[in-house]
Amino acid sequence: MILKDIQKILEAEVIVGDDLLGEDITIACGCDLMSDVLSFVKPGALLLTGLINPQVVRTAEMADLRAICFVRGKRPAQETIELAQSKSIPLLTTPLLLFESCGRLHREGLSGCSENKKKIK
């Protein structure tokens, strides 16, 4: 699916990256520990997290993640937004909790980072 679909499914608002909503995404992870993101998340994944500090964007940059969606209605400070903008990493924010967000996206066909691409639509 594309980022635009994810935005709709999660009732999310785009903070940065309106021009990147056509990006294709097939895998996702829900995680609040950045070392774990760095170690097991695959390139091109969507990161769902409750953290909003600049290091979340740095982590996405280092691990070649495609986009970040903040959960629980969290909204980062301007410096985090600017960093994401300069690295072309789209930022979304959803009012949903992490559990509901993962549940919905998994139901709609996104895979986790350990699953094989067995159910790509």
Binding site: C29, C31, L98, C102, H106, S111, G112
Partner: peptide, 8 residues
């Protein structure tokens, strides 16, 4: 399983 998959 990772969180995303287990929650799914």
């Amino acid at each position: 399983m990772p969180t995303f998959e287990l929650v799914g």
